[in-house]
Computed example of a mutant assay.
Amino acid sequence: MSELSIETVRAAIESHPDPETGRPMGKTGQIVEVTVDGKNAHIKLGLSSHSAAIADEVAAMLESKVVAASPGANAKVEVVPHHRIAPRSGQAGLKIKSVILVGSGKGGVGKSTVAASLALSLQQFGSRVGLMDADVYGPSVPQLLGLEGRPAITEAKRIEPIRCGDMPVMSMGFLVERDQAVIWRGPMLHGSINQFLGETEWGELDYLIIDMPPGTGDVALTLSQAVPIAGSVVVCTPQEVALLDAIKAISMFRKVNIPILGMVENMSGFLCPDNGKTYDIFGRGGARAKAEELDVPFLGGLPIDIGLRIAGDEGRLAEVMANDEQARAPMDKIARAVVRNLASKAAAAPAKPSLPTL
């Protein structure tokens, strides 16, 4: 137990790992300012936009550390922006901090809706996010977001993505007519994925969310060779037939050395607006049980939401996710869990010091 002072406050929090890099905050210049007035401590803490989804959690943890070190003290953490550039990575040379794959072992489980919603939720928290639709044969992201048009080619011969607000989006759906099928063999698929990654003007992002095609094809292998993958999210529904295919997706990611951030149980119960009762149309809890069995984190469940379903069909998913906090809440919980799991990985294996922050 120590008397509250600037020194004791700094000593209590300086070793706390930065959620983005895992490095001690005292060494990364993120403890911007500490002031003490009697029993009250005020801390200005710098966090990058990569950590925006869990900024309040980090602040609460540091406040509790100060109180534990000086019982009877009051601590308030104010989070301020901490700018950190994204180093270029992979063969594609992307300036993206974390690439996250969203996949499933089968179609029809809402994978694309989850991928788009995850991207929108992270953006709503304040992160810089891009969305890439790698489901070349069945691209649905343009429909979900109400996007159309053909990407322009810049003077530097690079692809200018279509934008959903500030979010860059790239999909094969922008390059073919809606009623036309893409009939390609593996090499052409490999080439298109690399082109989407390496020749698109993504800019500098915290996250690139990639909507994977269903099944266990070679897209995951192509991506794993092109760019470092921060992790994957596996989407399934509660019934056993979907879980069997989700197991295959997990096995695929493990074989190509892509970390698994967790499982999402989609269509997890339906709350009837007429009587307030919840009906487990597809069952409930199957993904959580299977995640525990496979030693995979369970990120959360997403209930059947008729409003979101209609919004996706009408191309208004981004609008509803931005304006309806109740509809967005289950996905916000999952987005926080994803960022939290990335922070745990970073703390376990801190990044090496790189270029100074700007």
Rank of each mutant, 00 (worst) to 15 (best):
V233T: 09
I6K: 14
T357D: 15
S64C: 04
E201W: 01
H83P: 08
N40K: 11
I334H: 15
K248F: 14
I54P: 15
I229Y: 07
D245Y: 14
E160L: 10
Y279N: 06
F196H: 01
R10W: 11
V114T: 11
A337S: 08
E57D: 13
I281S: 01
I193C: 03
K157I: 00
V34R: 05
E148T: 09
V67P: 12
E160P: 14
R340E: 13
A116F: 02
E78M: 13
T222N: 13
Y137N: 09
L120C: 01
N341Q: 12
V338G: 13
Q195G: 01
G29N: 12
G269D: 05
D218I: 02
S70R: 00
I260V: 13
A52W: 04
E63A: 10
V80Q: 03
N40E: 09
V176I: 06
P168S: 01
L147V: 03
V233H: 01
T237H: 13
I334A: 12
I193R: 00
S89H: 05
A249S: 15
R163A: 04
R328P: 00
A75C: 09
D332I: 00
R316Q: 13
G262R: 10
A68E: 09
A289H: 10
A337P: 06
V32F: 13
M132A: 05
S251I: 10
H82T: 02
D274G: 06
A92P: 06
G301L: 03
G300Y: 07
I334S: 09
L47Q: 08
G286F: 07
A291E: 00
N74Y: 08
A346Y: 08
A73M: 04
D135R: 00
N266E: 05
E57P: 07
E14G: 07
A59H: 12
N266Y: 00
Q91S: 06
E78C: 12
K345M: 04
G149D: 08
L175S: 11
T21D: 12
A318C: 08
T357Q: 14
S354I: 05
C164A: 15
A156T: 10
P353V: 03
M170E: 01
Q30D: 01
T216V: 03
L147H: 04
S268C: 10
I100N: 04
V66R: 03
R10S: 10
I43Q: 09
D211M: 02
G186D: 10
L197S: 08
T154R: 14
R316H: 12
G110T: 10
